[in-house]
Write a protein that binds this DNA or RNA. Structure first.
Length: 424
RNA sequence: GGAGAGGUGGCAGAGUGGUCGAAUGCGCCGGUCUUGAAAACCGGAGUGCCCUCACGGGUACCGUGGGUUCGAAUCCCACCCUCUCCGCCA
């Protein structure tokens, strides 16, 4: 949710940002402004009527008690008339509230000034880290390595559930477990509090972080109980503090959590679907921060460094991108992506997305803090980033670590957690 | 899943139709007193929305949403959650 004051004061900026993001219909701005104006008129009138209603009630009370029905009669008549008007206006305000809310939810978060404007080709590569491996043989893609070593069973996953729900087997499974442990340990070292979160969330939580209503089709919906499988731990971790007012000394709050993530990936069939590149269920460790508004861009850089440290711990070559406006989602003001080099596929794979949502999610989820004792509550800023998403990390580990004999050598830091240093 | 009890301000806990945003206690903030502190005493203190340049005023909120009534924390309906017992179960 954007700031209603911003919308009132500078609707052009909001429209320009929508165009830069290439999201939504700019007419939502006018719809919101119109609903806002009409709502305020209606509320002002409604409050006046309620005031009159209260006055009448206070006069009628004593009269009724004293049995002076005749004295009360004209007052009762007026009160009944006011009552009808109040009812009418309440309905009107309710409709206008809903209209305003719908329009506001359809307006994306304005981009930060440092975000390059443009489409995907305007994404800015900020840096590359590590050396991409060279081979004196033809490196294999990870799905061939995984099959050779029996690490991932896609066919049985498809049988038991469907495409995109693989089994990890033997060292494949142990590798998953080791990566989760390693990433959580790194986050703990960086000062995050580990949280084990529910992986089913309700509708309010989906709205709070911005998946709902506009990405409804991307989430698995358990209709029997009207709950949603989380597409990322961001949803439960950020909603952890929903509808709360935090004490002055509570911020910053840093949470980390591992969850499986479920994504329907509707509309992306046939794109990047080989192997582990794109799955309906995958594992991810998420990093989430809550902080005061004026600190959030410092926290964004810190969070970015936290995510990069995880990639570096695995020794995987990667690059960092600042996403251009057209590649940003509804909720982000600024996002960095981290992409690891995938030697067997000869391409970069996104393994982390690190974003500042400013107050956009906080407004939707109503997460506030009191800057100082006695001061008015303010919305926090929320940030999050993958730290990291597993499948593509596994792909890169297999592809970059492969040897001429088909075996795979694991980086030391991971081997220490996994309990084995090579596969095959 | 069945039966019962209950959801009130930071916490505890009154309030079962009228002037109740809500007693009281604890906690919290400010003050008086004190060399300082404690105790005692005095005062203050929720959130949203609307009007106002502001001072300030209005209004809503007692789990959530409806309803009855001139008037609802209080009565009615639905839902959610918590607790106790039974059943089931990792």
């Amino acid at each position: 949710m954007i700031d209603l004051d911003l919308l009132r004061d500078d609707p052009d900026r909001v429209r320009a940002s929508m165009e830069a993001k290439r999201i939504g219909d700019p007419s939502a701005v006018d719809a919101a402004l119109d609903a806002d104006r009409r709502r305020r008129e209606a509320v002002t009138e409604l409050d006046g009527l309620r005031q009159r209603q209260g006055e009448l009630g206070r006069q009628i009370g004593p009269l009724m008690k004293a049995g002076q029905r005749d004295e009360a009669a004209p007052l009762l008549k007026e009160s009944n008339a006011v009552k009808a008007q109040v009812k009418e206006l309440e309905d009107a305000v309710r409709d206008l509230d809903a209209a305003l809310r719908d329009a506001m939810l359809a307006i994306p978060n304005p981009i930060h000034a440092s975000v390059p404007v443009g489409g995907e080709d305007a994404n800015r590569v900020e840096m590359e880290w590590g050396d991409t491996p060279t081979f004196d043989f033809e490196p294999l893609p990870h799905w061939e390595l995984a099959e050779r070593h029996g690490l991932v069973d896609f066919e049985r996953g498809a049988k038991v559930t469907g495409a995109g729900f693989p089994f990890y087997v033997g060292k494949g499974a142990r590798l998953q477990r080791a990566l989760v442990t390693l990433f959580l340990d790194l986050a703990t070292e960086a000062g995050y509090t580990e949280v084990q979160a529910p992986i089913l969330v309700n509708e309010d939580s989906g709205i709070g972080t911005g998946q709902l209503p506009d990405k409804e089709g991307q989430m698995y919906h358990v209709t029997g109980d009207d709950l949603y499988l989380v597409p990322t731990a961001e949803v439960p971790l950020t909603n952890y503090l929903r509808d709360e007012i935090l004490a002055p000394d509570a911020l910053p709050i840093k949470l980390t959590g591992y969850t499986p993530c479920f994504r329907r990936e509707a509309g992306s069939y046939g794109k990047d679907v080989r192997g582990l590149n794109r799955l309906h269920q995958f594992d991810k460790v998420e990093l989430v921060r809550f902080c005061p508004a004026e600190e959030s861009y410092d926290h964004l850089e810190e969070l970015l460094a936290d995510a990069e440290r995880a990639v570096q711990a695995l020794g995987l070559p990667y690059r960092r991108l600042t996403l251009a406006s057209g590649d940003l989602g509804v909720t982000q003001a600024k996002t960095y992506d981290l992409e690891v080099w995938s030697a067997g596929q000869g391409r970069w794979l996104e393994v982390s997305s690190v974003s500042n949502f400013e107050a956009y999610q906080a407004r939707r989820a109503n997460v506030r803090y009191r800057p100082a004792e006695g001061e008015k509550p303010q919305f926090v800023h929320t940030l999050n980033g993958s730290g990291l998403a597993l499948p593509r990390i596994v792909a890169a580990l297999l592809e970059n670590g492969q040897q001429a004999d088909g075996s795979v050598v694991l980086p030391d830091r991971l081997a220490a957690v996994a309990g084995f240093d090579r596969i095959g």
